[in-house]
Design a protein around this nucleic acid. Structure first.
Lengths: 208, 208
DNA sequence: TCCAAAATTGCGGAAAACCCCTATAGGCAG
DNA sequence: CTGCCTATAGGGGTTTTCCGCAATTTTGGA
């Protein structure tokens, strides 16, 4: 059995260092290449040593998240990435798969689940929880379920307690247009009003 | 130097087990009594072995959170509790202090901060971040800043996408009363509208 | 290249939220 | 007992959000 070289990225030091300490119990099977707590630190560490598997926490899809995976995919095509996060949901998983992420483990799962996933992924197999496995075969993004760039702009302004009127001014468009965007977003996310919107966005990790 | 007996409670196995593995590097200074991932597990573990210091993650003040501290305080008055969480804010810290929590460390801090806090707390000293230290001397709860039980009921209904009208029906009170509660809550939390309310509540951990 | 799907833009009208005020009854602490 | 706070509720408004519907531009695939 060869040893798996592992990189760990998590903004919570306790997770990165703690996981490294925990995994060192499995020293015959894996080897910690590095731990990183920031995006800059991660990119620096990857240039020094490229592990086989990278465990990444997604804090928020638009901050330390989805775009990072795209970047990693370009720079290090051979790197196998596992998303290890407390975010959930089929939309997220579809996104991850479409970006080339190899594995997904939720943080509430036992550590065994992560270790199992690492083994699978190191062997070149995609690995997500059973109930999402069917997504692997069709892991393209159904565009009509994703919030667009324009919608994201509006979403962030809403989260900043801006009214539709202020948003319209800020973006230089009609109030009615902004309203329409809002409703479309509600529809896509399956919520009924602002309360639901904000809650769902935090659940998905789009806003802090 | 005596060894500190430590219990760890966190719903994320990676944090509980990882932290335990990490701390075992400091074996001359501390000793892990147990790790727990659920409330029931914690209470069972405490009956078997009572550590000197208990590190607890607060997921949400009303779920695995503030009320737990009150319970622990009653049952195990000598137990020194450290809140180790990714929630923040002066309101939270005041709440914690008022419930007898001895220490608070944010999860984005380096692990050294937690270890330093454990030393302080084990020595009987309250320990919170510098900028909140002034709260220790007056750690009573300013009641007018906390959401009341009734307000919490309403807050949860709002988070469930209920309209003011539906809330009024559900609670058997007037729409106007519910409106009044809403505005009062906004005022207390310093937000302008539902968007701000929901975001602030998730920040404080009151809703998922 | 051309068509269909989508993103983005917009309007009128209804519903809900938001604001400022007043007012009563009960509980609890100084 | 006398404030202070909570919970209740109303009047009378303004503002914002929500709902259907529709036009225009952009985009992506056959």
């Amino acid at each position: 059995m060869n040893t798996i070289s592992i990189g760990i990225f998590d903004d919570h030091p306790v997770v990165a260092s703690g996981l490294a300490a925990y995994l060192s119990q499995y020293a015959d099977e894996c080897e910690i290449a590095f731990t990183a707590h920031s995006r800059a630190g991660l990119l620096a560490a990857l240039q020094v040593q490229l592990p086989a598997v990278l465990v990444v926490d997604i804090v928020a899809p638009d901050i330390v998240g989805l775009d990072l995976f795209a970047e990693l995919q370009n720079k290090y095509a051979s790197l196998k990435v596992i998303a290890y996060t407390s975010l959930r949901g089929p939309i997220l998983i579809e996104n991850l798969l479409s970006l080339g992420v190899m594995g997904y483990v939720h943080k509430l799962q036992p550590l065994d689940a992560l270790i199992a996933c690492m083994r699978q992924v190191d062997a070149g197999k995609r690995n997500v929880p059973e109930k999402y496995m069917h997504l692997i075969s069709r892991y393209h993004i159904p565009t009509n379920r994703l919030v667009t760039a324009r919608e994201m702009e509006i979403v962030h302004l809403i989260a900043n307690e801006a009214t539709t009127q202020r948003i319209a001014e800020q973006l230089g468009i009609s109030v009615k247009t902004v309203e329409n965007h809002r409703l479309r977003i509600y529809e896509k996310l399956g919520v009924k009003n602002v309360a639901g919107l904000i809650l769902e966005l935090t659940r998905l990790g789009y806003i802090s």
